[in-house]
């Protein structure tokens, strides 16, 4: 029964077997936005993902922290601590921020990760991938995003203000919400109400693979996600159709918004891009994928460099 199902790859890939994690992800993202709106309305000083906290204790977005310190040519304690916290979060949870907190993927598509998945699938079909692996430790998609981060920091150094923060879709999403709240509270009708959403839509329509290949925040997190050992998607080789029976399944790869092939990307560092969205596990027809708290010792995990000789 399951073998017949996997014969139609697209229909399997588009029908998730479980929706609970997807619902949970949407809930956390909306929750973050709701907390922000409440904070604005009640004047609690809470803040947005750019910077949030209570009183004089606040965390700052790591890219924002870097940009403001570079722009102001000054080292400040709070942004520095924020960067350390972001690094720790990346080590503990990989790029989970991308799927569970950031409003951008939700803005793109409320239910599935379709846009990026489809863009990757189109690239693969047209043979556009230069190779299957990334630079060691960078993951397949990390290179271009790191380039954007580098240019963002360099332009900030040159011009003396945080250049990327002006157009960051995360910031623009919160700014749109903020403008709406001020419209409701103070009748402030400003052109921002139109310009910010238009800018976000433009960025996400033109740059379909923003999250995986261009976002500098994701690139920063990805730099340290290489040390992440918890909640890494792991295949049970006895259940997986590809490893156990040799069937060409590809359901997890097709579902992944970061274009990770859990079966074939062994040792390539592709797992650094994993945003813990759980779509692979939700789409696996054999329920072979789990997210264990600690990575099992066997090298059946798609990130360990493969050391067994071929000729065994």
């Amino acid at each position: 029964m399951k073998a017949e199902e996997t014969g139609e790859k697209t229909s399997v890939a588009s029908r998730p077997r479980r929706r609970r994690i997807r619902v949970a992800r949407t809930a956390t993202v909306l929750g973050v936005l709701a907390v922000y709106v409440v904070g604005v309305v009640l004047s609690t000083g809470l803040g947005s993902l750019s910077a949030f906290g209570i009183g004089d204790i606040a965390a700052v977005c790591p890219v924002g922290a870097l940009e403001t310190m570079i722009a102001g040519r000054i080292v400040l304690p709070l942004p520095l601590i924020a960067i350390v916290l972001a690094v720790l979060a990346a080590v503990c949870f990989g790029r989970a921020f991308c799927s569970w907190v950031c409003p951008v993927p939700l803005t793109r598509k409320l239910v599935t990760n379709k846009r990026e998945r489809d863009a990757f699938a189109a690239d693969r079909k047209k043979g556009r991938l230069l190779s299957k692996r990334g630079w060691p430790g960078l993951g397949r998609n990390g290179t271009s995003a790191l380039g954007v981060l580098g240019v963002a920091l360099a332009t900030t150094l040159v011009f003396g203000f945080p250049v990327f923060c002006l157009v960051c879709p995360i910031g623009l999403a919160f700014a749109t919400l903020f403008a709406l709240v001020r419209l409701a509270m103070f009748n402030e009708l400003v052109v921002d109400l139109v310009v910010f959403p238009a800018l976000i839509v433009f960025e996400l329509v033109v740059l379909r693979k923003w999250c995986a290949t261009l976002c500098p925040v994701g690139a920063f997190l990805g730099l340290f996600a290489r040390f992440n050992r918890t909640l890494v998607p792991t295949i049970d080789e006895e259940k997986c159709l590809a490893t156990a029976t040799g069937t060409a399944c590809d359901a997890c790869h097709a579902a992944c918004s970061s274009d990770i092939d859990l079966v074939r990307d062994a040792g390539t560092g592709a797992l650094h891009d994993c945003t813990k969205c759980h779509e692979c596990a939700d789409h696996c027809p054999a329920s072979a994928i789990t997210f264990p708290w600690r990575r099992p010792k066997a090298s059946a995990v798609a990130d360990e460099p493969d050391r067994t000789p071929l000729s065994s």
Binding site: V40, G45, G47, G53, V60, G64, T68, A71, G72, C165
Partner: peptide, 9 residues
């Protein structure tokens, strides 16, 4: 202008 991240705090 150098330091503002537009967080709104």
């Amino acid at each position: 202008l150098a330091g503002c991240t537009h967080c709104g705090r």
